[in-house]
Design a protein around this nucleic acid. Structure first.
Length: 584
DNA sequence: CGCTGCGCACTTT
DNA sequence: AAAGTGCGCAGCG
């Protein structure tokens, strides 16, 4: 079949319009051709007609108007050969293979969590697939099929050549990931939350993502085909969450098109202007408001005016600008601000974090299980302001903390020895600060907001919920990944922990290593990056105290190597090689 | 103002 | 019931 002039451009235009959910009508197609390829209107018209005649493009009527379809996509699922037999569209991925691929990626990601971020190396992927089915597939055939998956968009080839599961649905050629979900809990037996990786549901410990509000439902951690976390999205624009909170939760007429909750600022302001003044109405967002400091009624004292010239309004870091509610069917956005002076009082739930951020009582989450106070009473540490459910803290908290009395979490009760080690490493002034038991009343007074480069609250990596002075072992315990880890005494040491029986003798004991020995160990895997261990004078004892955040940020390494190095650090720390231990 | 993304109601398979 | 479609709106440059 000879190719019609501009055929590719026309098909591309149709595909793009479909992707945008815009009707691929003649006007839009012509417009696209003119804009992108400077094709003359009449030429475009002729070319489109030719394409229709030729059958490359289908002219259809849909909902009363004319649309054009990419014939290859429209009937790709039932293309027939000359005998009338249905033949497989070679451009469409093989469903069996897709399932195999999905399982392979899931398994590899489970074994090597870094693959979530780095992608799965092609060789690994092929090896895994062949190990499952070397009858139907050869190495070469697998790589061809991988290419097809990439073409179809269900697989993404990263710059480094590794693969990631792509958005499951990119157009009409949708891929039914949903039917091929694999529960990795079946593989791990873990008691964890569920994530969909591509279409693969992966059980994973939840962790609040930076800039990503943790909702109470597990779904908020779902990376589904539409990529709620936006991680793999190519385009830059992100849509605001449709509706976060609707106290009235009724009388909202279903409306076609945009939900009421996503009206823009000017629309809201216009609509609000129609309402009579009402004290219950929050201030409309002025142009110069900031994310965390803004006007509004203090959610603690319920007064709108400031209490003094230096008093400012602090908004909850979780729900700031994100909570929608309705007044007479109009969406309003509202945060739960509070006067600076109203925080850090007797009620620990109103305590600010050392980095000057604040979680309102509604959003405050247990640093172990990430559930809010809905799941039980939260005890809040007087120093680091981290919250724990009574059963989540180790040791368990017996009685609720009395109003006005102070309670320190296990990490803020750490011995001085650890503090000295951390300070020597120079990793974190937060670490050092939080050892200051003497001034538990004003943790914020010595802290300069977010200026520290090491800010464990705003780390781009899944933030470690563990407060600063945690030892590696306690750190792991904090992630709740291994019940075997438990703090038995006030002064935990490696010998106190239930580790011995699980030690892998092939993993060396680094506790007495010198700087050089540390360097040599890492140099065999990361000749370039290992130098940093020398520069930072990290010896064995220091290495055993390192936390994920230290490896990822303080060593100033690129993320990829840093993640790999972190895995080795954890291995050396626990002398085991269990993916669960460094899983996010 | 035009292009783009996308929720959701509607239509087709 | 599931998949396909595109209206109508918001965000953005």
């Amino acid at each position: 079949m000879s190719e019609i002039k501009y055929q590719d451009h026309i098909l591309e235009a149709i595909d793009q319009l479909r992707r945008r959910k815009a009707r691929p009508d003649a006007d839009r197609i012509f417009n696209s051709l003119t804009r992108r390829h400077a094709i003359d209107f009449s030429d475009a018209k002729t070319a489109l007609e030719k394409c229709v005649e030729n059958g490359v493009v289908l002219k259809v009527e849909y909902k009363g108007n004319i649309s054009y379809r990419n014939a290859a996509k429209k009937f790709s699922h039932l293309k027939r050969d000359s005998q009338g037999e249905i033949i497989r569209d070679p451009s469409k991925p093989n469903k069996n293979f897709t399932g195999l691929l999905t399982r392979a990626i899931a398994e590899l990601v489970l074994l090597e969590p870094d693959y979530l971020e780095l992608g799965v190396p092609g060789a690994e992927l092929i090896k895994n697939i062949l190990s499952k089915d070397s009858v139907r597939y050869t190495k070469k055939y697998v790589s061809i099929l991988l290419d097809k998956e990439v073409e179809s968009g269900s697989l993404i080839r990263m710059e480094n050549g590794n693969f990631l599961v792509g958005p499951a649905k990119n157009d009409g050629q949708s891929r039914k990931f949903e039917n091929e979900n694999i529960k990795l809990s079946d593989l791990t037996g873990g008691n964890t939350h569920e994530i969909i990786f591509g279409g693969v549901k992966i059980k994973k410990k939840p962790g609040p993502k930076p800039g990503f509000k943790k909702a109470k439902s597990i779904d908020s951690f779902t990376l589904n085909g539409k990529l709620d976390n936006g991680k793999l999205r190519v385009g830059g624009r992100r849509k605001r969450a449709k509706k976060v909170f609707d106290p009235s939760d009724n009388n909202i007429p279903k409306k076609r098109g945009r939900p009421v909750g996503s009206l823009n600022k000017s629309t809201i302001e216009k609509q609000l202007a129609k309402l009579s003044d009402n004290d219950s109405r929050p201030e409309s967002r002025s142009s110069n408001n900031s994310h965390k400091e803004q006007g509004g009624v203090c959610s603690v004292c319920h007064l709108q005016n400031k209490k003094g010239p230096t008093d400012r309004m602090i908004a909850c870091r979780e729900c700031s600008n994100k909570v929608n509610f309705y007044i007479h069917h109009l969406i309003c956005q509202y945060s739960f601000p509070a006067h600076f002076s109203c925080l850090n009082g007797e009620d620990m739930m109103l305590r600010m974090y050392p980095d000057n951020t604040w979680q309102c009582p509604h959003c405050k989450t247990c640093v172990i299980c990430y559930e809010t106070s809905d799941a039980g009473y939260l005890a809040v540490c007087s120093i680091c302001a981290d919250a724990y459910h009574m059963g989540c803290h180790q040791p368990k908290i017996i009685d609720k903390i009395k109003l006005g009395s102070k309670w320190l979490c296990i990490n803020c009760q750490m011995p001085e020895q650890l503090a000295v080690n951390d300070i020597q490493l120079g990793f974190s002034n937060i670490d050092a600060l939080s050892k200051d038991h003497g001034d538990s009343m004003s943790p914020t007074s010595q802290f300069s907001g977010n200026s520290s480069p090491i800010n464990f609250r705003s780390s781009p990596s899944p933030p470690s919920p563990t407060p600063p002075t945690l030892s590696p072992q306690a750190h792991l315990n904090g992630h709740g990944t291994s019940p075997a880890f438990s703090i038995k005494s006030e002064s935990p040491s490696f010998k106190d922990l239930d580790l011995d029986e699980n030690i892998d003798p092939s993993i060396p004991d680094a506790s007495n290593w010198t700087y050089d020995e540390v360097y040599n160990y890492f140099a065999q895997y990361f000749p370039e990056e290992a130098k940093v261990f020398k520069e930072q004078e990290i010896d064995g004892p220091s290495l055993l105290l390192m936390k994920r955040i230290d490896v990822l940020t303080s060593l100033k390494l690129k993320l990829g190597p840093a993640l790999k190095i972190y895995r080795h650090v954890v291995k050396l720390q626990v002398r085991r090689d269990d993916p669960k231990l460094y899983w996010l």
